[in-house]
Nucleic acid binder design. Structure first.
Lengths: 235, 235, 235, 235
DNA sequence: CATGAATGAGACTTCATTCAT
DNA sequence: TATGAATGAAGTCTCATTCAT
């Protein structure tokens, strides 16, 4: 079933030229996933009723369970559909990056914000954090499908910087956590207090990302003496 | 009724000098709030059953509803009760600190972890984040009672560093957010995925705090040229 | 429609000489009935899903309802189809038997087990017993089509034994019920607890039949004195 | 919980003189068990809705689950309440019997009919047979709580007869099954086809029991020659 | 004040049945 | 004739809340 639901987003465009019934069948999973993403992000996993998801997708309760065997599986499918795929593309871009690591750091942070953080899927991480304790199966799934790959990706950036002599020889894991902290804070803020009308603490993502990147790049810069050595070696 | 339940923590101390039965009567809301805090932090709002709260407080289900008209109101009371006064001492210690700001940064982060983050009340922030959308009124309260004072406190540290020439002339608000990000990530992690047995990404708070402090202190360090100027000026 | 579905088993043989497509069309109900018999016997009426019946018959869910207006009607058709004609051959063999009645008793019991009890149709009796209350019409049908002829057949054996002086002059009907009890117990056991892996009370049909036959033949044996008389009379 | 629900039937009589609330609390399980027994026997396990049981007991859906954690446990409680207890008493009577075994056979069969078979609880065995395949947990429970003790009890009667030289040295287990067959047939018949108005095959329990007992006692009687030996031995 | 038995609105999930194609 | 997507009533079980005692 998992493969069945991983409907590529193009199915929506393709729909126009397909015969009526085939169209519905093809489009259903996508419509349901979109509706589910909306509601899960808006209300959380437990507070989202299967029936509401179905209603928002314009189908009946039963139809939802025709495509997803349970609410839990629906959630997993949403995560796979809206995060896992993007993570892969994100990883590719990082791998192909050629310039200096400090630039990669800023580029990656911004890219992540644009492609994940700012989208509706960005709300998932807050949700997962909140429900992890009550739904161990989901927590495990999210850990292995999202957190681990994501963490590894960022760790690879840190390692790249160290290997190229652009960063000090810091603890990779702790530094990775610091990066993650920056991004999680931005996204969690935007999906909780940041959405309150008169919040008073608006965070401009572009400025925030730029600032954090600079901060961390500066913080990781090799010491002057070390730089001297490096410079000398290059000579 | 709402005010009735916002029992200040002193009620517990005051209790000593009152006759036995009255003491219990006064203590009831406090015991219920403590039990509710435990369970809400552990399981979240929806997954916490009113009956369990009552049982942990050693009273019957009916009694809970005698003091709090609904689970929702209980939740609000818990948040209000657990947060008020937490920041005051923390603020005082910061104000009294004499040494260089980079040291204050590390000191403050660690102090916060020990006095707030690692305690049961530390779970509140994750809780609030998750439920902010469902309790706008409460989110507003938390914003003005906790987030704003907290943010201002941290901002004052950043400003102190800049004023004393120990930090570059960075954007105060953005830097403050970066600090907050570090602490929020630690606490959220500890209360969600960090508690999964075989998580694989354990974060040692002491090492994390030390690393983040170093990173940000380094990152905020005035540039060499600027330092030179500063030095010369001091002369 | 009810009559339409009561397809006699010969339809399968007849099918050979018809063109291919027509053959399938004729065979459909039979295939569905066979599939339904399997599943009803295996799982009972309520626990059998229409979709599973269709799948086992190799058609779609919709097709099932094309031939049978409801699951209930399908059930009725299965019972009617699976029972009719089963007893005829059995009755013939009994009628043709030449030897002493005690031998006939054992022979008939074993024959019944081999030709009915141990076959899939054997499961019907348990099914009917369980659902008789919910399908009065069907119970009536089963009573007149199966139970009455079957009972009469067995009664005729008892009468034969009495008439030939091989059995005591017992109450024919009660004795018949005792016979039936033996067989029903065997079949019901095999289709319920007997199929539990670690049941602990396996019943070997051959030994059981032999034992029961011996028991009842012994029990029906004329008393010694009576036998003496009989012997003397024969002389 | 098990002990809680094993309410002695006297609670109903006692009820008159008890205070209002205590009465209800005490009486509930008994009322629910009675209602459940009625409906389970009437419709089967799967077809009986929890809500109907509650309604028949005069309480709401929720109340049922206050006393029994699931429909399955409710069923087990019914079995314990209406069968297991009687089985024990039945066993005691058998153990205390002093006379010859053939008399015990008839006495036990009749006692069983009066105390179990003819009561509403008698319908349970048919029900269990029908549902055993679909509810393995129930089947296992019934096997160990009812079938095994019951079978052992009957086996002990057969062994008693053999030990006292009143029965031939037959296979104990097969003979036991034969006994069981008699009783199961009677009870199943009464609860299925026997209850059809114009059934035509009424079985009079008293006559049936007497006849079966006689049949089997006769069938188990030691052979004349063996008897001769026995007689000689006694001399 | 305190209790805890009782309630009933819902939550998820299943599945017989329909109907457009 | 055949399909299979869609439906929605029904079933079990949970739990916030009420109220008689």
């Amino acid at each position: 079933l998992a493969e069945l639901v991983a409907v590529p987003p193009e199915s929506l465009e393709r729909a126009e030229q397909a015969p009526r019934r085939a169209r519905r069948k093809d489009a259903r999973p996508g419509e349901l996933l979109a509706a589910a993403l909306d509601l899960f992000v808006e209300r959380g996993f437990a507070a989202t009723r299967a029936e509401d998801v179905a209603a928002r997708a314009g189908v009946s309760k039963g139809t939802l369970f025709l495509y997803f065997p349970s609410k839990t599986e629906l959630f997993k499918a949403v995560v796979r559909d809206s995060i896992v795929g993007r993570l892969r593309e994100f990883a590719r871009e990082v791998a192909e990056f050629q310039g200096p690591t400090p630039e990669l750091v800023e580029h990656a942070m911004w890219m992540w914000w644009e492609q994940v953080g700012s989208t509706k899927a960005g709300g998932i991480s807050k949700l997962m954090m909140a429900e992890a304790g009550n739904f161990p199966e989901l927590a495990q799934f999210y850990l292995s499908e999202v957190i681990q790959p994501g963490t590894n990706l960022i760790a690879s950036i840190v390692q790249r910087g160290i290997a190229r002599g652009e960063f000090r020889n810091v603890d990779v894991m702790l530094t990775t956590q610091a990066f993650v902290a920056f991004m999680m804070h931005l996204i969690n803020w935007k999906h909780s207090f940041g959405s309150i009308p008169a919040c008073g603490y608006d965070v401009d993502p572009a400025a925030y990302v730029k600032h954090c990147a600079e901060l961390v790049n500066n913080g990781l810069k090799p010491h002057a003496s070390a730089m001297l050595n490096t410079t000398q070696l290059k000579k």
